[in-house]
Structure formats: structure tokens, C-alpha cells
């Protein structure tokens, strides 16, 4: 698992999906993110790496305004999704989050059946016209989540009864069921065993065909395996951003090099 093989895949000349400029985040008096500029491409996996506490998860949560749920958090700067500022007053975070879905560190299926877990998003956003339509959406999402074969016979069983890896794939399927344009993943494999991790990583690679995926990880190997672009965060600063291959073989900044070679973090 820990080879440093870098996945060589073509990064097409994709469009910019999200463009962040001069982003600052404050938690009360703490300056958590300092002046970050980054361009996230469509149909690409972008990895955020860095030592713990460097702000990578905080920045990820800015991208679909999950930070709004924390009272003391304040965001400055511009984050544009398809050229529209997501922190504009006119933007409803609910609508934004339908476009920018999120998968969390620990699998968090709702205490409902597998079917209802997947159908939750489509139901609240009104994506299905009728029951048959909804069934179709659920099946499609479960297939995309690479878990359909394991659960198709027990869609009524509670989602909490699945194993950790299955739960996380269920959560990914739940996120893709609402047809988002961007999928944010906050250390999706940190609570999983190596085999489940491998399955989820394969899944991420497949998802790239339809979505722009942003993944936060503390594992450099994982970043190297799944991503095409990598951003290295350190103490709230975006130190270096570039093609994954370049970051891992030829880092420009010496902090990046120290981190990759294991001297810091």
C-alpha cells in the first residue's frame, strides 16, 4: 500500500470549476487560513495534503459553506463556482450544497434504511418525479458508489448495520445521488481498514469521469495514488499547488520537500 507510484493519467485541459482568491478564515481570534489562492479543475481529482491542523479541512469546508454552521467562523475573500461568488448574499447555501456535495471523515449513515439514506438527498431536492424514478436514482447512485451488488438484496436494512467500508461507500453514493458538480471528501479513508481504503480509492478514480473531486488526506501515498493535482497546506498557508507528479518528484518549495520526505509533519 505504501508505494510511491504516481498514477499517470492525462489531465485534460479541463475548465476551472472553482476559483478561490485571497481566502482568509478566522475562528474567533485564530487566523486559520491565510490568503489562499487556488483553481480547482473540472473532472479532476485534487488532493489537499499537509500536517494536521494546517487548515486543509477548514478550507475544504469553505467550498460548500459548511463553515456557516459554526458560529465563530468568518470567511473573507472570493470563492467562485462557475464564476459565481458562493459567499454572495443572494446565494442560498442549501442550493449551493446541492451542487457541491460532501463526504466526511467518519462514515455517517443516517439511522434509516439503505434505500432511505440514498433517497434522502433526491427527496429533499425534489429530483424524482415518482417512485419508479426514485428507485432508478437510488440504483444508479448505489452502482456509482460501487456498493450496489453488496446491498441490492437488503435495501430495507438499516444503513448503520453495514461494515465501515460499506458505510463510507454508502455515504459516497448518498452524496452522488443528488447529482452534484463537485464532490468534497474530508479524509474519507481515515476510519477505514486498508482493503476498504483500496475500494474507496478505486471508486474515487471512477468518479472523476463525472465530477470534480476534492479530497483532503493526511496520507501522501493516497494523494499520489488518486489525484492529478495536489495542494500542500502548511500552518494555514497554501505552500505549493501543482500537478501531483511534479509535487511529489520535484517540489519547488523546501517545506513541501521536507514534508514529503518526512522531515516535518
Amino acid at each position: 500500500m505504501n508505494d510511491m507510484r504516481i498514477v499517470r493519467k492525462d489531465v485534460d485541459m479541463n475548465d476551472t470549476k472553482i476559483s478561490a482568491k485571497g481566502v482568509q478564515v478566522f475562528y474567533g481570534d485564530t487566523h486559520a487560513i491565510k490568503d489562499v489562492d487556488v483553481e480547482i479543475l473540472d473532472k479532476t481529482v485534487t488532493a489537499f495534503i499537509g500536517p494536521s491542523g494546517c487548515g486543509k479541512s477548514t478550507f475544504l469546508r469553505c467550498l460548500n459553506r459548511m463553515n456557516d454552521t459554526i458560529d465563530i467562523c468568518r470567511v473573507e475573500g472570493n470563492i467562485l463556482l462557475d464564476g459565481e461568488d458562493i459567499y454572495d448574499k443572494r446565494v442560498d447555501p442549501v442550493q449551493l450544497r446541492a451542487k457541491v456535495g460532501m463526504v466526511f471523515q467518519r462514515p455517517n449513515p443516517f439511522p434509516k434504511s439503505i434505500y432511505d439514506n440514498i433517497a434522502y438527498g433526491p427527496r429533499i431536492h425534489g429530483l424524482a418525479k415518482n417512485k419508479a424514478d426514485l428507485d432508478e436514482i437510488v440504483e444508479k447512485a448505489l452502482r456509482r458508489g460501487a456498493i450496489w451488488d453488496e446491498v441490492k438484496d437488503r435495501l430495507d436494512a438499516p444503513g448503520t448495520g453495514l461494515s465501515g467500508g460499506q458505510q463510507q461507500r454508502l455515504c459516497i453514493a448518498r452524496a452522488v445521488a443528488t447529482e452534484p458538480e463537485v464532490l468534497l471528501m474530508d479524509e474519507p479513508c481515515s476510519a477505514l481498514d486498508p482493503i476498504a481504503t483500496l475500494q474507496v480509492e478505486e471508486l474515487i478514480d471512477e468518479l472523476r469521469e463525472n465530477f470534480s473531486v476534492v479530497i483532503v488526506t493526511h496520507s501522501m501515498q493516497q494523494a499520489a495514488r488518486v489525484s492529478q493535482k495536489t495542494a500542500f497546506f502548511h500552518l494555514g498557508n497554501l505552500v505549493e499547488y501543482g500537478d501531483t507528479e511534479q509535487i511529489f518528484t520535484n517540489p519547488k518549495d523546501e517545506r513541501t520537500e521536507s514534508y514529503i520526505t518526512g522531515r516535518i509533519g
Binding site: M66, G101, F104, R106
Partner: peptide, 13 residues
């Protein structure tokens, strides 16, 4: 809190 995050992350009010 993870339950709430999961739901809010899907765009629920």
C-alpha cells in the same frame, strides 16, 4: 454532529 453534517452537506435545510 456527524449526522447533522451529513444531512447539511447534502443540501438539506
Amino acid at each position: 454532529q456527524a449526522m447533522r453534517d451529513g444531512s447539511l452537506g447534502l443540501g438539506a435545510t
